[in-house]
Amino acid sequence: MSVFAATLRRELLLGLRTPAEIINPLFFFVVVVSLFPLALTPSPETLRLLAPGVVWVAALLAVMLSLDSLFRRDEECGALEQLLVAPGELYLPVLARLCAHWLLTGLPLVLVAPLLGYMTYLPVEVLDTLWQSLLLGTPALTVIGAIGAALTVSVRRGGILLALLVLPLYVPVLVFGAGSVGRALDGMEVSSVLAVLGAILALAVSLGPFAVALGLRISSGD
């Protein structure tokens, strides 16, 4: 079995054996979005205006919080060490692990987002843009955040530090992601903005795993 397939299989198995890791970010996403009407107002006009930002920020935080455990479990049991001494480039196993992580934590967010958009009074025709922008945006968030997770894997209690490192890096994705939904709400065309999100995703997926691999090596002391 190729390294990519073997790693993908292992990560998916691990995810299915510990379902809490999949469900918790999803719950977090749903709970945070439902807090906003309580904190602000149940008025549809206000909520509709704020919905793109609220859903996007909640999704971003859910992705970020899921990342702290991305490499930590493997680091604690020594499996990360075995990954680092493996012959060959780390690109493929790292990419496989990020793919699996997104499938388990990012994809559910994309799937549940239209429901949350509906609950925050987004018009039905805007919901398409919402899930499309999240589909392009959340994998980029996973890859960019993984760089921070790799750099902080040797730091005990690195959660807050991870946020400090990663949140500024998330700004472009957030701006274009929430911006695309905002434009759709104003009835403007969004394909150009989605294209920019796609470009960011392409950049993140092509270069990101190299940075993650380098970060893991640095954290191991190389």
Binding site: I147, L151, L169, V171, P172, I200, L203, A211, G215
Partner: peptide
């Protein structure tokens, strides 16, 4: 590594903002 990643980000942040 973080500042190298950050430099790419600075440019994109500039355009996005």
């Amino acid at each position: 590594l973080l500042s190298l990643v950050g430099i790419i980000n600075v440019v994109i942040v500039r355009y996005s903002v």
